[in-house]
Design a binder for these strands. Structure first.
Length: 437
RNA sequence: GUGGCCGUAGCUCAGUCGGUUAGAGCGCCAGGUUGUGGCCCUGGAGGUCGGGGGUUCGAUCCCCCUCGGUCACCCCA
């Protein structure tokens, strides 16, 4: 920690003092206008979609005791390899949330609300991994968790909500893949059978998968290696390890999706990286994205997690969907066009700026988006700014208007003529024109 | 963490087989039009050619390292 050798791009300066301007750390990014307008729309649409289903906001902290996340499972890479962990000044061992569910479950255990507890979140998620397109060290997830019910209808509810959300923002292609892992015992049984089976075909697996075949046999199932895939195609199915009850749960889920008009495919080889899943498991993908990161949302049941975090045995189901990937999918599909600005009126004041100040305040208080120029710029510059602002109208105050107590109202997006209105009637005149259009 | 490719203006990119003051388009600012944006014309600002070291009389160009970006693997949203 006291190594005086600076290895970064600033050998001349002290450690941690870059020579040039600061840049965002590796793998993170700024969301700024105009692109941030779509971000707002995504979050607002999500809140509306799940809010109508009775889900309330759960705003839990971005960091927790590291144990909260460690309980998600030893075989979970986001916990074992990718966690942003640190010690605070009180020597508490903490970690930035690597996913959304654990924090919500911790909050459930801490507050013990009545069930079913249905909540949603919008939160940054941190994973220390090498960034690439659609994969960041800080990304953002929208999600819901419904805690306290084992009813398969609830599995259906969350899946339909996610499908409806994607539709609401304009995505057309979001194929849904579902699978089941049964109970933890059935899952363990299946893993053992799978491991034994891979053992008999070890030589046919890709070398990188041979090591995983005994430790994490489920993980081999979604290998991208060609050799492994041809082996996996004939591997035993999870469905043969399930009892009647688990099969009935899965059947009810499929029937519910069909009844809701949500198309899906069953893939008995689909697994996900989080170890806590039981029974229903699902993924929404975007065929518009490259295969390496085409999952835009996923989730499932986690009936054992509440207990693992110190609560009573409690069934639960939920999902998370990545805002960045959803927006990439929207880009690819040309979906989600939103207005870059809420400004409807731009006030041009070439006298002294007092009228601009008064009129913008008056318009905003009347609920009308209004902006103005600063620094006493020329009329040409202010008109140019008015055009760029995206406003529909310019209100112009020059010497004549100031003298006469009027304002010139000039349309910027249509061919109509500009008109003169009394200052006292300005807000009404603007409102009338905006509602007529 | 491993590997491939790429770093020239705010953005998108030319360029130099190593040679004087590094260019274009878009964007920005100003003027043409001292009361009018979007089109047009003119001018202007803006660059440690990612950073450091090396080779050379001379490096934006060649070599090494490094940082960053990007793509793939691993894994995942």
């Amino acid at each position: 920690m006291s190594d005086p050798e600076p290895t970064a791009a600033a050998p001349a300066g002290p450690v941690g003092t870059p020579a040039g301007p600061f840049r965002a750390p590796v793998g993170v990014h700024d969301v700024i206008p105009p692109a941030s307008a779509r971000w707002e729309a995504v979050v607002a649409t999500f809140a509306d979609t799940v809010g109508r289903a009775g889900y309330g906001l759960c705003q839990s902290p971005m960091f927790e005791d590291i144990g909260v996340f460690a309980r998600m499972g030893e075989g979970t890479d986001v916990v074992t390899k990718e966690m942003y962990e640190f010690r605070d000044r009180g020597d508490r061992h903490l970690a930035l949330r690597p996913e959304g569910t654990a924090s919500v479950v911790r909050a459930f255990v801490e507050h013990r609300p009545t069930t079913p507890w249905k909540v949603w979140y919008a939160s940054p998620v941190f994973r220390y991994e090498k960034p690439q397109s659609g994969r960041y060290r800080q990304h953002h997830q929208l999600g819901v968790e419904a805690i306290g019910s084992a009813d398969p209808d609830l599995d259906v509810e969350v899946m339909v909500l996610l499908a409806d959300f994607y539709a609401a923002i304009g995505l057309r292609q979001t194929p849904l893949v579902v699978n089941t892992l049964g109970t933890p015992a059935q899952r363990t049984d299946y893993a053992a059978r799978l491991s034994a089976w891979f053992g008999q075909h070890l030589g046919d697996l890709d070398p990188v998968d041979q090591a995983k075949a005994t430790d994490h046999p489920l993980r081999v199932l979604d290998s991208k290696k060609r050799a492994t895939r041809s082996v996996v195609a004939h591997a035993p199915s999870i469905l043969d390890s399930l009892d009647d009850e688990a099969l009935a749960h899965f059947d009810r889920v499929q029937a519910g999706l069909s009844a809701a008009g949500v198309e899906f495919t069953v893939d008995p080889r689909m697994v996900r990286g989080l170890d806590y899943y039981t029974h229903t498991l699902f993924e929404f993908r975007s065929p518009a994205l490259s295969e390496a990161q085409n999952t835009i949302g996923g989730g499932g049941r986690f009936d054992g997690l509440v207990e693992a975090l110190g609560g009573p045995a409690t069934a639960a189901v939920g999902f998370g969907t990545g805002i960045e990937r959803v927006l990439l999918a929207c880009d690819a599909e040309g979906a989600l066009e939103v207005a870059a600005s809420k400004v409807k009126v731009f006030v041009v004041d070439v006298v002294d700026g007092h009228a601009a100040a008064a009129i913008t305040i008056q318009l905003r208080r009347a609920g009308i988006g209004a902006d103005r120029a600063f620094d006493g710029r020329s009329m040409k510059a202010q008109m140019k700014a008015a055009d760029r602002s995206g406003a529909d109208y310019a209100v112009i105050i020059g010497a004549e208007e100031a003298q006469a107590g009027t304002a010139t109202l000039r349309p910027l997006r249509s061919t109509g003529d500009q008109t003169s209105v009394a200052r006292a009637d300005l807000v009404d005149a603007v409102r009338r024109r905006l509602t007529d259009a």
